[in-house]
Design a protein around this nucleic acid. Structure first.
Lengths: 344, 344
DNA sequence: TTGTAGGCGTTATCAC
DNA sequence: GTGATAACGCCTACAA
């Protein structure tokens, strides 16, 4: 009933099923004539090869598993888009699993993907990246972490992420180039490597502009907009207050912008603001947000390429570690340098 | 090398592979003692059942295919989140494929999913829904369309979408309840069924408030923010201009808000604005946007449930049509009724 | 050039 | 209870 198989075609064409198999895979071991006849017949009968049966014998599923915390995060969604499109271009398809931020569910997902015999695994924003180290041997497939939040990256790990220090440096250099000299930083989650990196970039840019680092200008945020809202009054109470501020990410900056508006401060006249991420929103807020864009699509793209390379090179089995970094890009909008149209 | 199979376990345990199979599936046809022994051994050896081999014999993959235009659309991403989580809860996993708005790629995706023998198919925002009608017979699995933009829904189709008329009615009733009587509508893509439905809801709400419909108040948009920006001057040039406006969707409303700000109109004092969708941004714009929320997660959830039902009931083979509608929910924010804190 | 036979890792149906 | 044996749909030596 369900689906026609090569045996059905074989019967119809009065040949053996192996001849059908060969004809359909364009094997040279079959006569031109029967080849076209079989292929025509297959199309007519609505044949669709069974990928499972094929991969059972070939040992490859042409499928890669993708584990995310939640696909509803626009940032992650863009990375996944890069993954899906790149995978498709290489003849691979993608099984998506989300952990909903629960480590247990994340392990479930990995186990399920192992059962489905994915050829490789990409994990984004995992906070439990370390667990993969233990599971790697039995997983038997390459694993690439994207944008993970772990501190230490040991052996057996492959990851790809943005160069946080470089990005932070870009952001702050932009401000120093504009002449700002008293520049604040609103942090993200304190011990995330991304926060540490961006802070380091901040210090580096200050240093190269000949500005001495002042720790009171670093105020805590949390990566969310409410963190930015709370940070603003703290910054403005300083003597003297900063004239520009670099925020851990765009959501922080957006919260800070909102607080500034309510406090009657105009941006960028009273305070220049730079974010990080370039979430879709940042061009729509008012004033639009200067930020460091993370190449999200590209990160997905590179993750797939890394997995593919690791797959073919898996004879040299994993002693190597590789952590690739992509460079962020400064996007100048109204919240820094330029004066907004209608705010003068 | 790669993965241990039940045969490996059988050899190790000195039993037949069928006994191992039974032990691992908790069959009653195996002694308690060997069952625990085998299960222990399996865990020790790092056994992972091969889902492909299993589905080859069972005829079920416990996988559903999801075709999207792009996962980077936050709206779609939330629907997919609902799909993934619901599927997971029912023991199903999700293969994701994106069409990038190209019909040809969409067909590719469907063909690939057929090869992978998915048990069901969910397609979101397809503009070529009609193609599925032809392919349905050979697809041999249930297909559910989510939020599709086709006009006619013929036989053999199953879909789920928001009740546009009801939603439009909610939005405009909210405005009439507040006392507004001259209310505009900025359209979406003219012939989309969603636009037609929302317009119909607009007219219905006017009628039940005893307001006669005035066609000049309906001005064209395009579903994007620039459409909203261009619509504002058109509306304000009317004599008399509207005091409130319902927009086809949030992006349109956001564009309109921006134009209003540049024109020196304050919202909602000079003009109340209501959108549709409740995209994540709408709570962040200023003033925050009153809107009709589409239950995106729920739509994904219901789509999975529909697929699951159709799967088990596929003996009654498809003569039926079913189009389920979920109800939107009014979210009142600053852009309508309430006056924003700092705008008085 | 084509057919036969075996195997991929399961489950399921028989016997014993 | 357990063990052969035969599927599931495909690929691929090896024979013919």
């Amino acid at each position: 009933m369900s689906q026609v198989s090569i045996k059905d075609i074989a019967r119809e064409a009065s040949v053996s099923h192996s001849t059908v198999s060969r004809a359909l895979s364009n094997s040279p071991l079959v006569s031109e004539e029967t080849r076209v006849r079989i292929q025509h017949l297959a199309r007519e009968m609505g044949y669709s090869p069974d990928a499972q049966a094929r991969s059972l014998v070939k040992g490859r599923t042409h499928t890669i598993g993708v584990v995310v915390t939640t696909i509803a995060d626009p940032f992650i969604a863009e990375v996944v888009q890069g993954i899906e499109i790149t995978a498709h271009d290489h003849g691979y398809s993608v099984i998506l699993a989300s952990s909903s931020f629960e480590p247990e569910r994340e392990l479930d997902a990995v186990e399920m993907l192992r059962s489905k015999r994915v050829d490789g695994l990409i994990v984004t924003s995992s906070r439990v990246g370390a667990i993969y180290l233990e599971h790697l041997e039995r997983l038997a497939v390459p694993v690439v972490l994207v944008n993970n939040h772990r501190e230490e990256t040991g052996r057996y790990t492959f990851s790809i992420g943005v160069d946080n220090q470089h990005g932070g440096c870009l952001a702050v250099q932009h401000l120093t180039d504009l002449g700002y000299r008293r520049i604040g930083y609103v942090t993200g989650p304190a011990n995330h490597s991304s926060n540490v990196g961006r802070l380091e970039g901040y210090r580096q840019a200050l240093a190269s502009a000949g500005i001495t680092f002042d720790p009171v200008l670093v105020v805590p945020g949390n990566g969310r907009s409410d963190g930015g809202e709370r940070a603003l009054p703290v910054l403005m109470r300083l003597k003297p207050p900063p004239t520009a501020v670099f925020c851990y990410n765009d959501m922080t900056a957006i919260g800070l912008l909102r607080a500034a508006k309510e406090a009657g401060l105009s941006v960028p006249q009273h305070l220049a603001v730079v974010g990080f991420d370039d979430i879709p929103f940042s061009s729509y807020v008012h004033p639009s947000l200067t930020t460091v864009a993370q190449p999200k699509f590209e990160m997905g793209e590179q993750a797939v390429q890394m997995v593919l390379e690791l797959m073919t090179a898996c004879d040299v089995p994993t002693e190597r570690t590789s952590n690739d970094f992509v460079q962020g890009q400064l996007i100048v909008r109204e919240s820094s340098g330029q004066v907004a149209y209608n705010a003068r």
